[in-house]
Design a protein around this nucleic acid. Structure first.
Lengths: 219, 219
DNA sequence: GAATAAATTTAGATTTGTCTAAAATTTATT
DNA sequence: AATAAATTTTAGACAAATCTAAATTTATTC
């Protein structure tokens, strides 16, 4: 079954919003895709007629098995292309998302599988997100953005999300490196900045912006 | 200036049809894009309003400087992606066109230039067609498909358009190899099959299908 | 040079995806 | 429980790209 780019964008959005299997709301998708609630309702009728979502008026909706399967193939493409852009073409971590949003709609199963092979069957993309294999299976996410940790959680820096000299300079100054262990001591709701404690060092604060670019393995 | 995929397809089609700079007809584009003459007229109004073509009702049309520049960037993308698919991902020569027709519409100048760099700034694509550089300049085409030769023209086999064992078997049997010199003795209009003469061998006939997959340097 | 044929354009309709504004429904609040 | 607020859906419109059929213009032929 083939889908338009618009359909695929809705499928992907619903997939990310349902997470655990809970129902998704019209407004949530509208906000996520920067479109109107009315457009979402229109598209839902279409996706329902194509048997990708279970949906009852006013009651919310979610992807069914077929919808999830479709979502995973799109996510697979997106993450493989991101890996290609960063690993093969040397793009920066932070500049590949929009391009991958276009590339994920290219229709050719063979292309995706050959790209996967060329890249050496990567399990995770440059952001640390798991890449579904050609059957839609994916590994547990082993690393998350530091920004996703909550208070008192601890972890170990496992990756840095971008190679810019500005970031590297900052990390050097704060003595943060791969393997550094840390605990979240406080999160300021005002700006999401975090107070963290590393090894035997004194407490210090990092911005939400920086936290998003650091990956940790939770411990 | 950004264009839709539909606009880009028309621009590319007109470019290929005008060749020398002659006027292009509505019907020619319609046939080329498998669409209706009415649709072509509609699109021409749009391209005229965007100042890409010079066009007067009923009089034919052609790309202006800006239109040609745009066409060359699309052709550059198409041919670089074909090179990538064949050289990097090991696709067969004959299966990349449709995929490249999708990839050529991806919007990102940086992506194209990085791809070009990754591929080592190739001058010709896997079909022997020249690849415009980032300023739109391209080399003279040094090889053409054997199918494009006309009667009494001569040339030398310079490349084989696909690596399938079926084709290689055929070439071996007919004793055709890189460097083989030949002359077109006759072309049968019924099926475009060609009678060719090689070196000191007797005349023999090859199908149009085969001729399309053989490249020659004209002499 | 008038009649006919071919090519091109216009007119009007369709599909996809979107929008705003109004109506319907559900949820929250006195 | 009644009303207010928020959410969702419907109704109607629009832009892009396409189509068919009819009208117009250009080309060809007798």
């Amino acid at each position: 079954m083939l889908f338009t780019a618009a359909e695929e964008n809705y499928i992907k959005s619903i997939f990310h919003l349902q997470e655990d299997g809970s129902l998704v709301s019209t407004n949530a998708v509208a906000a996520n895709l920067h479109t109107s609630a009315a457009s979402v309702t229109d598209m839902l009728k279409k996706l329902k007629s194509k048997k990708l979502v279970s949906y009852e008026k006013y009651k919310g909706f979610k992807l069914n098995i077929e919808g999830k399967k479709t979502a995973l193939t799109i996510i697979r493409k997106h993450r493989l292309w991101e890996s290609f852009l960063v690993n093969t073409l040397q793009f920066g971590w932070d500049e590949v998302h929009e391009i991958a949003d276009q590339l994920e709609h290219i229709q050719s199963k063979k292309l995706v599988d050959k790209l996967d092979e060329f890249l050496g069957y990567p399990k995770f993309d440059p952001h640390g997100d798991p890449i579904p294999d050609c059957n839609g299976k994916m590994h547990e996410q082993i690393q998350t953005s530091l920004a996703e940790l909550t208070i008192h959680e601890s972890g170990e820096i496992s990756a840095v999300g971008n190679q810019s000299s500005a970031l590297l300079e900052l990390l050097k100054h704060k003595q943060i490196q791969i393997g550094t262990k840390l605990v979240i001591e406080k999160i300021f709701s005002f700006d999401q900045s975090m107070e963290i404690k590393m090894n035997n060092a004194p407490l210090f604060t990092i911005s939400h912006e920086l936290a998003k670019h650091l990956f940790v393995k939770k411990s």
